[in-house]
Write a protein that binds this DNA or RNA. Structure first.
Lengths: 226, 226
DNA sequence: AACTGGTTTATTGTATGCAGTATGGCAGAG
DNA sequence: CTCTGCCATACTGCATACAATAAACCAGTT
């Protein structure tokens, strides 16, 4: 949005986000939504003109997106939207699984009543969404659930890493299948219980199972490209 | 080919690294070595003048270092060398352990003869270093060993992440203790064997043990701050 | 003396300009 | 027709200039 941040209509004079952040979000959205397809070259000057900003914020946004895995940069050659290969997808999933298992374990270890309440709340909401067949909203609930576990683990860095990989995995698989079905959601309840009871080993095990099944569901579905 | 190296100080010809990368390395070295202590503000213009470059490469280097965890940036307020708290150290160790365990497992699963050979070579060299009491060199061998395992896992992203966290952990603990002693090295042999034999479960288990012991060794030593 | 208000200053955020390099096309030779 | 070398072009890397903002400072008032 905000294609032309002309003079005064720029968000806020006091709490305004930097152009770099805005450009970064905009480009990420375009990449995730498929407007900028994998392999497309990202020319700084072109994007700058299109977004009505200078090259500087565009350049920094591209660097940021490279760190997030959405863009690849070749020195002196320029940037391009990252290609998503099956191999890269597996690599990401491997990393995410490892991190998520630790998150579950720590969450079971360090959970606070507030953490447990939040998990239960998300769980309840998800159940309603499943019952209502609102699959689109369930995707959001799914993200929230995993994020809540990461939060409960009390490792800010881990939370950030997981969020990053989740976004990326969502992107990679977004062209392959609609995810977060009822069966995936059902597994969440057991995970929440293990965490609530402080059963670290079981939390680890259930998370690992959940993720490998989740991955299997991804891969088994036929492509439903946009 | 323009073979006119006008300015002699620039070590470029056709394979020159970008200034950004050079500045990044330089700053990282200064941070890790303690020349730039935690909490110190990093003012772009000051650093630019000191390194005889413009603000642009300095700025991008600082952003890079933020992603690596060496620097924290507050929007509109500037950057500073990251403070190293005990909590952050534990968080890092937690993440690194999780990643390293997966790396060991995958290495045991996908190892090639070349991987095994390299592990054995590093192991042999390390043994010699231990025998000779060359502890400084052993630190390097230690890094190489863990890096070789990551390589063998065949997940480039995992390798990069691990390298990043290893560097950071080395930094965090560098002011606390000299690490990589003989006892730590002895544990490597068993890890290499498990990987060589393709015993994934044992590779996982040994790695987990090795890292927790390693962490314990770190923490038990008295501070030898510079 | 403490507090509020404006003012100054240091530093980041953004824009623009310039130079060097990689790339694609074109011409000429084999 | 294919290959090799030159040349035009486009883009990045870096430098510099300007604008905006948050912190520090100072003065005036209560």
């Amino acid at each position: 949005m905000t294609a032309t941040p002309a003079a005064g209509d720029n968000l806020l004079g006091h709490r305004h986000r930097t152009l770099e952040a805005l450009v970064c979000d905009e480009l990420r959205n375009r990449i995730v939504s498929g407007v900028l397809p994998p392999g497309l070259r990202l020319v700084e000057s072109t994007l700058a003109e299109e977004l009505a900003v200078s090259r500087a914020p565009v350049r920094e946004a591209i660097r940021q997106l490279e760190h997030e895995g959405f863009v690849t940069i070749s020195p002196r050659r320029g940037a391009a939207v990252a290609e998503l290969s099956a191999e890269a997808a597996l690599d990401c999933y491997e990393i995410r699984s490892a991190l998520e298992v630790v998150a579950a374990k720590r969450a079971a270890q360090r959970r606070t009543p507030a953490d447990v309440a939040r998990l239960r709340q998300i769980l309840a909401m998800g159940n309603e969404l499943v019952a209502a067949g609102r699959w689109a909203d369930l995707v959001k609930a799914n993200t929230d659930f995993h994020e809540a576990i990461a939060d409960a683990a009390g490792n800010a860095e881990l939370t950030a890493l997981l969020a990053q990989y989740s976004r990326r995995i969502t992107w990679i698989f977004s062209r392959t299948a609609v995810h977060a079905g009822a069966d995936a959601w059902a597994e969440h309840a057991a995970m929440a219980t293990a965490i609530e009871q402080g059963d670290q080993a079981r939390a680890e095990e259930l998370t690992l199972q959940h993720l490998s099944r989740s991955q299997a569901r991804f891969e088994s579905r036929p492509s439903t490209a946009p």
